[in-house]
Write a protein that binds this DNA or RNA. Sequence first.
DNA 1: TGTACATCAGTGAACGCGCGTTCACTGATGTAC
DNA 2: TGTACATCAGTGAACGCGCGTTCACTGATGTAC
Lengths: 219, 219
Amino acid sequence: MPSSGEMATDRKRYHHGDLPTALKQAAVVLIAQHGVEGFSLREAALAVGVSPSAAYRHFDDKAALLGVIAQDAFREMGQRFQSAMASVRGSGSRAARARFMAQGHAYVGFALEQPERFAVMFGPYGAGATMPNSAACDHPGLDVDSPYASLSRVLDELLAAGAIDSARRPGAELLAWSAIHGLATLLVSQALKQTALPVEAMVERVGQDCLRALKAPLD
Amino acid sequence: MPSSGEMATDRKRYHHGDLPTALKQAAVVLIAQHGVEGFSLREAALAVGVSPSAAYRHFDDKAALLGVIAQDAFREMGQRFQSAMASVRGSGSRAARARFMAQGHAYVGFALEQPERFAVMFGPYGAGATMPNSAACDHPGLDVDSPYASLSRVLDELLAAGAIDSARRPGAELLAWSAIHGLATLLVSQALKQTALPVEAMVERVGQDCLRALKAPLD
DNA sequence: TGTACATCAGTGAACGCGCGTTCACTGATGTAC
DNA sequence: TGTACATCAGTGAACGCGCGTTCACTGATGTAC
C-alpha cells in the first residue's frame, strides 16, 4: 500500500526532509571512494535518490557544496579539540602538557580517520578559498571555537604553568601547527609509511619535541 | 616557403624530437593554471601541438604522466637540497646548522615557487602511489640523492658537531620533515596567511625550533 | 651510394561517457481569511 | 473547519562540453646489404 504519507522518516517523499545534510554526507562518502577530483554533484544527488538539479535548490554550485563540507570539517575539528582538552582534568604543567598532546592526537586522528574531509579542508575549496575565519596568525576576531583558538589557549596555559618559555610564546602556534599538520599530511599522503612506528608514537614524539623547543630559553 | 625540413629545432616536424619532455612541461603549466583536478591529457597534447593519441606512445595513461612528473619533482628537490648544502662552506656546529636551515629554505622555496609540482609530489599520483624510493623512515636502500637522504646526512653532521643530542638522533628526521613540510603545505594552501610574517622568517623560526628541540637532552 | 624494408612516432576520426548547469514544469506545504 | 493561493522543493529533459582511450592508418627514420 504505497498510498498515504504516514511514515515521516526515511521513506521516500517528494520533499526530502533535509536534503542539504544528506547531500553533504553522500559527498563525503563519494569523495572517500573516488577522491575530491572524481567527485561529482550528479553522483551525490543520485546516491541520495534525488534528481541532479535538486541540489541547486540548496547550493549555488558544486564549489559551494565543497566549501560547506570544508567548513563543517573545521567545526568538527574544533569540537574534537575542545573535548580532547576537556578530557584532561587538573591544572598545572603536567595537565597543560597532556592537553597539548591531546590536541595533537585529535588532529592526526581526524586526518587519518577521515582523510577525505581533511583533504577538502586544505584543498582548493577549503582554507584559503572558503574559510570565513581562516586561522591566520594575526586574525583578531578569530572564532573562539576554531581549532586554532584552542591551540592558542593551550599554549597560554603552558606559559602560565611555566611549561614553556615566555619569550617563545609569541608565534608559538606556528611551530606546533606546522609540525602536527606536517605529520598528519605526510601520513595521509602515505609519504611516511606507518609501518615504521605506530602513529601514536609519532604524534607523541613530534608533540614532545615541540614542547621541548618551546621550553628552551632563547640562545 | 614551407618546404624542406632544414630547421632542426623548434620547427614543426612530423617527429617531435622530445615529446615526453614537452608533455611534462606543458602539463606543469596547465596544472598551475587549472589545478591537478582540472588537468587533461588532451589539453597537454594540444598545447604541445600534437594529437591527443600521440601521448600514448610515451605514457601508458594519464596517471603515468603525473607519476613521472612527481618523480621529476622529487629529483629536483633532491638537487636543490644538495646545492643548498653545498652553498654553505666549512664544518663544525655553525656550518651544520646553516646547512640544515638551507634545506628548510630550499624545501619551502620549492613549494611556493612551484606549488603545482609540489602538490603532485604528495597528491594521489605522488609519494604513496608512484614513488619508487619513497622516503619511508626505515627504508634501507634509500636513494642517496633523495631529499630525505640529504636530511639524514645533515642530521648526522649536526650530531657529529655536537649540535644535537645523541639520544635524539634516531628518528630526528620525523620532527624536521613534519615541521617543514607542514609549514610548506600550510603556506601553499593559504591556511597560513603570508602577511603575518615574511616566509623566510617563518622558516627560520620553525627550523631553529627544531634544532632547539633536538639539542635539549632527554628529560 | 642506393635501395628494401622494419620500426618508430605520429595522425585523425570515432567510441561512449559523465559532467555542471539551465529551464519550464509540478507536486507538496503552509498560511490568510 | 474549509478553501484560495503563494511559496517551497522537487522533477526530468535537454544543452553543450571535454574527457580518456582505441583503432586503423601513414609519414619519417634508420639499418642491412
